[in-house]
């Protein structure tokens, strides 16, 4: 098992509160009687790849949905760059700099791949109705910029050849990449990916990892839900583990890898009960 953090141990020591880009504070979300997320405190450090892991139904996607404004939290707060964003609309959150992908790919299926990425730049453009109808020179310039950026993004993810193909016609793996490219086109500070490797084969997963590492620049932070432990260990600097709506552990990948509580949550309590009896399951919320 390869741990990304081994290489960055010195940097990790510098982690402090100023480096936190996203923080949730006692975040709670319930659906009817079911508390999907319960008083969750988690943090994502600037410039790192953070992972959110946990068994199915742990509430990971719900956390993402609350962070990106799709659901309104029932309690607690989400702080992005120190500013509270909970209760804001998704599009407002996008313009603040959080972009996301979905667990079940959600592309604009009848629009071409290029148009999909162009749509991602919507919030970074400003042409209104009249300037569009009359095609003012500013609008034309802006449109050209949008097209140029979209074309370069499309090349970056290697989908140039599908430029004019409706998004629904390309392969599953390509759709995943297209969705990530679309999210990147919003020029985010934080990229939030919900199980980006699910449904991908080994090679595609490798490519995805390489791609994510390559886009991780000074001003981009990545926050991923991932179920493939190998991927988690390989790419993440920081891992948060959830189970039944609560945080049960956080730390560097190697800390998590060796954490009995996590192993227990993943493998079921019965098998491990004799060895490690420390964790008694979540207290009622």
């Amino acid at each position: 098992m390869e741990f990304r953090t081994e290489k960055k141990r010195s940097e990790r020591m510098k982690r402090n509160d100023n480096g936190i880009l996203l923080r949730t504070d006692q975040l709670t979300k319930s659906f009817g009687g079911l508390t999907a997320v319960c008083r969750l405190n988690l943090r994502v450090h600037r410039g790192e790849i953070s992972c959110l892991i946990g068994p199915n139904g742990a509430g990971k996607t719900t956390v993402f949905n609350v962070v990106t404004g799709i659901y309104r939290p029932d309690g607690g707060d989400v702080l992005f760059n120190g500013e509270s964003i909970s209760g804001k609309k998704p599009h407002q959150i996008v313009s603040k700099g959080i972009a996301r992908t979905f667990q079940n790919i959600r592309l604009f299926s009848n629009m071409t791949c290029l148009e999909n990425i162009m749509a991602g730049q919507h919030c970074r453009a400003s042409a209104g109705v009249w300037s569009s109808v009359f095609g003012t020179s500013r609008q034309k310039e802006e449109e050209k910029r949008i097209r140029d950026v979209a074309e370069s993004r499309l090349r970056l993810v290697g989908l140039w050849k599908f430029k004019d193909e409706p998004a629904k016609n390309i392969a599953y793996g390509s759709q995943r990449m297209l969705e990530i490219a679309r999210a990147l086109a919003t020029q985010p500070k934080l990229l939030v990916l919900d199980e980006p490797s699910s449904g991908l084969n080994d090679r595609e997963t490798e490519d995805l990892i390489d791609f994510l590492k390559s886009v991780l620049k000074e001003d981009l932070t990545i926050f991923i839900i991932e179920h493939d432990m190998k991927v988690v260990m390989e790419i993440s600097d920081w891992v948060t583990v959830m189970d039944e709506g609560r945080k049960i552990a956080e730390g560097t990948p190697e800390e998590i890898y060796n954490n009995p509580v996590v192993i227990e949550a993943y493998l079921g309590k019965e098998e491990f009960s004799e060895e490690e009896g420390s964790y008694d399951g979540p207290a009622p919320c």
């Binding site: 990106t68 799709i70 609309k89 998704p90 599009h91 996008v94 313009s95 972009a99 996301r100 979905f102 959600r106 592309l107 604009f108 749509a119 991602g120 919507h122 919030c123 970074r124 679309r182 999210a183 919003t186």
Partner: peptide
């Protein structure tokens, strides 16, 4: 949903 999540009001 995807439109909203891509910054479209």
């Amino acid at each position: 949903v995807a439109a909203e999540a891509n910054g479209i009001d």
